[in-house]
Simulated assay, not measured.
Amino acid sequence: MSRAPITKAGSERLRSELERLKSVDRPRIIAAIAEARAHGDLKENAEYHAAREQQSFTEGRIAELEAALSTAEVIDVTRLNPGSRVVFGAIVDLEDEDSGEAVTYQIVGDLEADIKQRLLAVSSPIARALIGKSAEDSFEFQAPNGTKRYVITGVRYN
C-alpha cells in the first residue's frame, strides 16, 4: 500500500475536522435522532429521516478521514531544503504570461487539496508541470480551456 503525502498543516486540519465530527457533530446528531424518535411514528417523521441522513454522511466522513490519515505520510515542508526548486509543499508565485495575472498556489497532497484555498493537488496537471522547476522558469500545461503559460516569480516554503 502506498502512502499518500500530506503537509503537516493539512494533517492538522484533517485531524481537527475529525475531532470536531466525533466530539461535536456526532453527539448533536444522536440527540436530534432521539428527539425525533420521541415524536412518534417514524415513517412520516421528516426530522428523523433528515437526522439519520446527516448521521450517515457524518459517519462516512469520519471513516474516510480515519482511513486517509492512517495511510498518509506527513511531510514537514519546513525541513525541506530544495532551494528555489519546486517540490512537494512549495508555495509558488506565478504570473500568467498572456494576461499578466499573478497567482499563488501551494502544492499539497491529494487529501488536502482545495482550489478555493489555492491548495493544488500534487497530482494535478499544473502541479506536475511545476515540480522540478525553479524561480524564473517558464512552463506551460494543458488546462481544460487550452494551453496555459506561466512564469514562476517566487518559490518559498513555510
Rank of each mutant, 00 (worst) to 15 (best):
A68G: 15
D41A: 13
K133L: 12
A121M: 05
P82T: 01
H49R: 08
E35P: 05
D25L: 15
E66W: 10
G100L: 03
R20Y: 14
G100P: 12
I107Y: 01
E47S: 05
R20V: 15
V108H: 00
L21E: 03
V86T: 00
A113H: 02
I29D: 00
A32G: 11
T78M: 13
A63D: 14
S124W: 03
L111S: 01
P27N: 05
A9R: 14
A36F: 06
A135E: 14
E73H: 11
K116R: 15
L80I: 01
E44P: 09
A68Q: 03
T104M: 06
E112W: 02
Q55T: 04
I33D: 07
V87C: 04
L14K: 03
Y105D: 08
F141N: 00
A143G: 09
E59Y: 02
L14G: 00
E95F: 06
G83K: 05
E66R: 02
K116D: 06
K43T: 15
S56E: 15
S84I: 04
L111W: 01
S99H: 06
S84Q: 11
A32E: 14
R13F: 06
A63T: 12
G60E: 13
G83W: 04
S134Y: 08
A135G: 07
K116C: 07
L94S: 02
L65N: 05
F139D: 03
S23H: 07
R79D: 13
R13M: 10
R79V: 08
Q55A: 14
E64F: 08
K133W: 09
G132A: 08
F88S: 01
E97C: 15
I131P: 05
I62D: 03
A127I: 01
E136H: 07
K43Y: 06
L65Q: 07
R85G: 01
I126C: 08
S138P: 05
S99R: 11
L120T: 00
R28E: 10
E73M: 12
I30T: 09
N81A: 07
A50N: 14
R28L: 13
R37Y: 12
L111E: 02
R15M: 14
E73T: 09
L21R: 05
E66A: 11
A36K: 04
L42V: 11
E136F: 11
I107R: 00
E12A: 12
S56Q: 15
T71W: 04
G132W: 05
N81M: 08
F88Y: 06
V74P: 03
D96P: 03
L111H: 02
T71N: 15
E17Q: 15
F141Q: 01
V24H: 07
G10S: 10
E53M: 09
P125R: 05
K116H: 13
D93H: 12
P144I: 10
Q142F: 09
F139K: 06
S138L: 04
K22M: 09
E47V: 02
D96H: 05
E59N: 11
P125F: 08
P27R: 02
K43F: 10
I33C: 09
E44L: 08
L65H: 06
G60L: 05
I115T: 11
R37K: 15
A135H: 06
G60I: 08
A135D: 13
